[in-house]
């Protein structure tokens, strides 16, 4: 059971979905933003260049993807680039979801905040900052959210043990 364009290269995935609104808008307006594309289990994941995240969000927002559902992180330690920030975006009119992925290095774990596009990102980005230690440039109040303010360490990093002392 495989879907069209699954496990294929970026160009093949983009070519397999010519009518997809997000792909059309991004390839027309920001041709350099999409670094990679994946279509897996009925879900589209677009890897976005780190510096293009705000403009990409604005572009898909204008294309009808009006609702930011979630922002979270994945730690691919010890691989590089280490952190993947996943953005889940939903369109109420198209009834369709897309996922943006931005990869950031351990050396400079930071990405621009998208709170200017969707204020909903505020808590989500704070949570990622708290638990992964990834900074969001331009965030209005980048503080710890779930852990105490004086806590050291980022619990969801893979080199943080599940039990025992650090």
């Amino acid at each position: 059971m495989t879907d069209a364009g699954e496990n294929q290269s970026k160009d093949a995935v983009l070519a397999a979905h010519p009518d997809h609104r997000a792909i059309a808008a991004l390839t027309q307006q920001l041709p350099d933003a999409i670094q990679n594309a994946k279509y897996d289990r009925g879900e589209l994941t677009l890897t976005i260049a780190r510096e293009a995240i705000i403009s990409s969000c604005r572009t898909v927002q204008a294309a009808g993807y009006n609702f930011l559902v979630d922002v979270t992180g994945v730690d691919w330690y010890p691989n590089q680039p280490r952190f993947q920030i996943s953005y889940h975006i939903l369109s109420h009119t198209l009834k369709q979801r897309i996922r943006f992925a931005v990869f950031v290095d351990e050396g400079d774990p930071s990405v621009d905040s998208i709170t200017s596009v969707w204020p909903a990102a505020n808590f989500y980005e704070r949570e990622v900052f708290d638990l992964f230690g990834v900074r969001f440039g331009g965030h209005p109040k980048l503080r710890r959210l779930l852990m105490p303010e004086d806590y050291r360490g980022n619990p969801l990093r893979k080199d943080f043990p599940v039990e025992g002392y650090r």
Partner: peptide
């Protein structure tokens, strides 16, 4: 792989992102 699955819970959209 990675998936995001959402349902309508009593409070709104509940989603699980599993990698």
């Amino acid at each position: 792989g990675e998936v995001y699955q959402a349902i309508e819970s009593s409070r709104g959209e509940m989603g699980y992102y599993v990698v």
